[in-house]
């Protein structure tokens, strides 16, 4: 069975002229080896130059081409048109404000990400002249999987708690907080815990698990957050039951 053409049903919204979004249909040629991103690029190059969307690397590294394909948060550069029926619905990532067409506003995520200090906080006073801080393969293996995050926001788009609770820090940022907390070179747990262990942090997660199902990089945010809850709870009980301890 060979297909000649397929149809894209694309979410359109122009803040300068539209009050409401609308869906526009495009007939495009079918190619067995096309990604959904290639199909969008065909529309942009040949049919409608006004269509706006983000993309860059075309190889699931930059994390900028995430969209809803038939309602599922997906990297359009990681989804082949051949895996879909003859009509493919493409919408901007759910749970984010739409700037224009398929482009969402990421400001909320960016500020939340910064708030959990996703970088190594090294407070010991070893001078640089003492050389680099070495790490064993076992110490690397502890957090290695979580370094795969490309901030594509698919997990936020899949997370019901992010859509229900405006202040929830959300999967990727909490995962990155955990990634640094468990890094043997890092001493920043307590600085992050104020945010991570708050009602807006891990405790707003109800373990739907959708984040891990849609993650294109196998990062498994749900695992990071559950393990973060255990760490945070241990810290809480130590602080309240053993106030004399140094935590």
């Amino acid at each position: 069975m060979s297909r000649e053409t397929i149809e894209l049903v694309v979410f359109r919204y122009n803040p300068e002229t539209d009050c409401e979004p609308a869906y526009q249909r495009y007939q495009i040629p079918y190619h067995h080896d096309w990604l959904v991103l290639d199909a969008l690029n065909y529309v942009k190059d040949h049919l409608d130059r006004s269509l706006s969307y983000r993309w860059s690397c075309h190889m699931a590294v930059c994390g900028s081409c995430g969209m809803m394909i038939n309602g599922e948060p997906t990297l359009t550069c990681k989804a082949f048109v051949r895996d879909y029926a003859d009509s493919i619905r493409i919408e901007p990532l759910a749970n984010f404000p739409v700037e224009r067409d398929l482009i969402v506003n990421q400001d909320d995520f960016m500020s939340k990400l910064a708030s959990v200090k996703p970088y190594i906080i090294d407070t010991d006073d070893v001078p640089l002249s003492e050389g680099e801080e070495l790490q064993t393969p076992a110490e690397l293996a502890v957090f290695d999987q979580y370094t795969g995050c490309i901030n594509c926001l698919l997990c936020y788009s899949a997370c019901p708690q992010y859509s229900l609770s405006a202040d929830f820090i959300g999967p990727a940022a909490l995962t990155l907080a955990h990634r640094y907390n468990i890094d043997s070179r890092d001493d920043g747990f307590r600085q992050r815990e104020e945010r991570v262990g708050s009602d807006d942090g891990v405790w707003q997660c109800s373990f739907v698990g959708a984040c891990s199902e849609v993650c294109p990089k196998g990062v498994d945010p749900a695992a990071a957050i559950q393990q973060g809850k255990i760490t945070s709870a241990a810290h809480y009980f130590k602080k309240h039951l053993m106030p004399w301890s140094d935590s």
Binding site: G197, A233, K239
Partner: peptide
């Protein structure tokens, strides 16, 4: 602010 949910979450 630190949450008190750990108590109920542990239960």
């Amino acid at each position: 602010m630190s949450s008190h949910k750990p108590v109920f979450w542990a239960l």
